[in-house]
């Protein structure tokens, strides 16, 4: 029953956000500000996540596929395809649920409990347009950009790990990566990041916007935002794979 009520409130907030999205003048400034915070500020952690994911995949694949009958280029194919189709999107999104989602829920939650959202409304602002719309739009736009960063550093990390550990020569790695490359996997990755960006920013905005009960309430809404975002991202990942592949 509570879950249904939450779903109803979440849908109402999304409807309000959709209706308010035409008020570009209200959220223009914060939209660009959010693009920087969600996109640019997340680049270092996405670079690191991508790099180490690719590196570990190469080392583990080399360990598991150690056979004279399997060409080394297979490792390049496995690593690059896995990163493009799944890991760059999902692992980056789980990390961003913690970084971006928690920040959004905390910011909005603090604004709610310190009456800053009431202050905006009482001045005549549409607080949904001012606070929720720019965050969700910036998320939808910047998550696919971060996907590119994760892919580049993931494949780059895999390549370098193979090179420096001596398990896969760069030429073999690149040969495998090119041989099995399908443009659709990249499009699929972009679609996933677009959806995950929406899920994380909208759930976190919802949890923060309706936070109650002081510091403890903000903490609870931040935790819920992160946990629910991660769960919904994994569910959406499964649904998208079932529908689009």
């Amino acid at each position: 029953m509570k879950a249904l009520r939450e779903l109803g409130n979440y849908s109402t907030l999304l409807y309000q956000a959709l209706r308010s999205s035409t008020e570009f003048k209200t959220y223009r400034k914060s939209f660009f500000h959010e693009m920087v915070k969600i996109g640019y500020d997340s680049v270092p952690i996405i670079m690191l996540t991508g790099f180490f994911t690719g590196s570990v995949m190469t080392i583990q694949s080399a360990y598991q596929l150690e056979s004279a009958f399997i060409p080394l280029s297979t490792i390049g194919a496995i690593v690059s395809e896995s990163i493009l189709i799944e890991l760059a999107a999902v692992i980056s999104s789980l990390v961003l649920a913690g970084k971006v989602g928690a920040r959004i829920a905390t910011e909005l939650g603090t604004m709610r409990v310190s009456e800053q959202i009431d202050a905006l409304e009482s001045m005549g602002f549409n607080s949904v347009s001012f606070l929720v719309v720019p965050r969700v739009l910036a998320g939808i736009m910047m998550f696919p950009v971060l996907y590119i960063v994760a892919c580049v550093f993931g494949i780059g990390g895999g390549l370098l790990a193979g090179l420096f550990t001596g398990t896969v020569p760069a030429a073999d790695f690149l040969l495998g990566a090119r041989m099995y490359f399908q443009p659709w996997t990249v499009i699929f990755g972009f679609v996933k990041m677009f959806v995950f960006g929406f899920i994380i920013t909208s759930i976190s905005s919802y949890k923060g916007y309706y936070a109650t009960g002081g510091a403890e309430g903000v903490g609870k809404s931040t935790t819920n935002a992160t946990v629910i975002s991660c769960m919904v991202v994994l569910l959406a990942d499964f649904l998208l794979a079932s529908l689009l592949l």
């Binding site: 310190s114 009456e115 800053q116 009431d118 202050a119 409304e121 009482s122 001045m123 005549g124 602002f125 549409n126």
Partner: peptide, 23 residues
């Protein structure tokens, strides 16, 4: 409706208990 309500709210100034300044 919401738009008229927002316009009318501009006739009100509110001092909140915790001041509600944007930090």
């Amino acid at each position: 409706d919401y738009v008229s309500k927002r316009k009318l709210r501009q006739k009100f100034g509110v001092l909140f208990q915790g001041s509600a300044l944007f930090d």
